[in-house]
Design a protein around this nucleic acid. Structure first.
Lengths: 215, 215
DNA sequence: TAGATTGTTAATCGATTAACAATC
DNA sequence: TAGATTGTTAATCGATTAACAATC
């Protein structure tokens, strides 16, 4: 099987595969089966095989998947075989934390500019990058071919910043503000909303056993 | 409709509803329809009605939902009508960023202790909290009835920290390390993995139009 | 009353899993 | 060859959406 439109669920699993494959590669494991992957990643082996088969025949019957080859393939599918420049807007603690993940992403996806609307932050250093004022966003995005914007500003500024990023020409946005951003359909927006993760966790806490569901 | 086992997808939407309802409440809007909610939150109105109906009859036909009443109900469902104490393990930039979200959560879910394995961080202040050494984790979790642990330590430490949290008695973990944590089934683990969000975003970038899916 | 909107059932859609022939 | 494991089809499962009677 190839082509068809690939579902979002499938695409979101690819980085998970890639991550573990990189680990196997470091450990110099040459080959891995869908069963092994599934066990390690808490996924059904059939699902893994199906996911990968959307993009090509990457495995060998009776053997499994060649780790290096599959890494190469997934990196290609995710377009991580080219450098992708990223802008970070919001130089607070969260922005700081994210900029440290550059290493992890092995330089193919790279934060190349940081912006903040707060004058007191402008000019300071985040890793090796000088924080720029937000009105330089448009020029910089174009000059540096920035394709993805990460939004780590307070809620009230998030939509405005997103609009500016889109106006400047980014193709995708990773939004950390816990609000629903409005964007035109050709712009891909992912929301990394840990308040949702945290609050929904509370639902699963044990309590005086029965809690009323209605009255 | 009530009871049945509620799916994870439903539970994860509740905080999203709650967030917008709080906004409406601040704006003193008395009432809201599923249609209006759906439009604002990019969800199907029928889905919203169905989600809420799992827990009780919260709406009024012809009118919609009373904002204050629905807030109260959702807070109850999510157990946010009681204080839930949280421990943060990892006092880096990400931990710092998260501790600032206390305000947002309106104090019902509260980080009451911060731990770090790095001696140079122990004793320093994060907001109003003194960073404690990790070997005080067990005692503190019990003493302060901490029920949720947030893990913001490097990958290599994450599983060990999670084990310590579980051993200490937390019921749920929010994991920020991009690895799959192993935990017993009665422990709820949510992974807030923004590397997955970010890398999967790359898939949706435009490029020289057709990119090969196989060769 | 007429208009609006819920709660709920039925229909649809999509994603996951099982099963197995093909084949390394 | 025998054992392992893929790629893929068919079966299952679950979640979303449409439709509408009930009713405010």
């Amino acid at each position: 099987m190839k082509s068809d439109k690939i579902s979002e669920a499938v695409v979101r699993r690819l980085p998970v595969y890639l991550r573990y494959l990189n680990e196997l590669h470091t450990r110099e494991v040459p080959t891995v089966s869908s069963q092994e992957l599934g066990q390690k990643l808490d996924l059904n082996p059939a699902q893994i095989r199906k996911d990968l088969a959307y993009f090509g025949d990457f495995g060998r019957k009776g053997i499994g998947y060649d780790v290096s080859y599959l890494i190469e393939k997934i990196r290609h599918i995710l377009k991580l075989d080219q450098q992708i420049n990223v802008a970070l807007v919001g130089a607070g603690n969260l922005g700081h934390a994210l900029s440290n993940y550059n290493m992890y992403l092995k330089e193919t996806m790279k934060i190349v500019a940081v912006f903040d609307s707060n004058d007191s932050k402008v000019g300071s250093l985040i890793n090796t990058l000088v924080v720029q004022p937000i009105d330089e966003l448009g020029i910089t995005v174009k000059a540096r071919s920035i394709r993805i914007g990460i939004v780590t500003v307070p809620n009230v500024e998030a939509q405005r910043v997103a609009d500016q990023l889109i106006e400047a020409g980014v193709e995708a946005i990773l939004n950390f503000a816990p609000i629903i951003l409005k964007a035109p359909p050709h712009i891909r927006v992912h929301t990394a909303d840990f308040t949702t993760d945290l609050l929904s966790l509370a639902y699963y806490l044990e309590d005086g056993k029965e809690h009323e569901t209605n009255e």
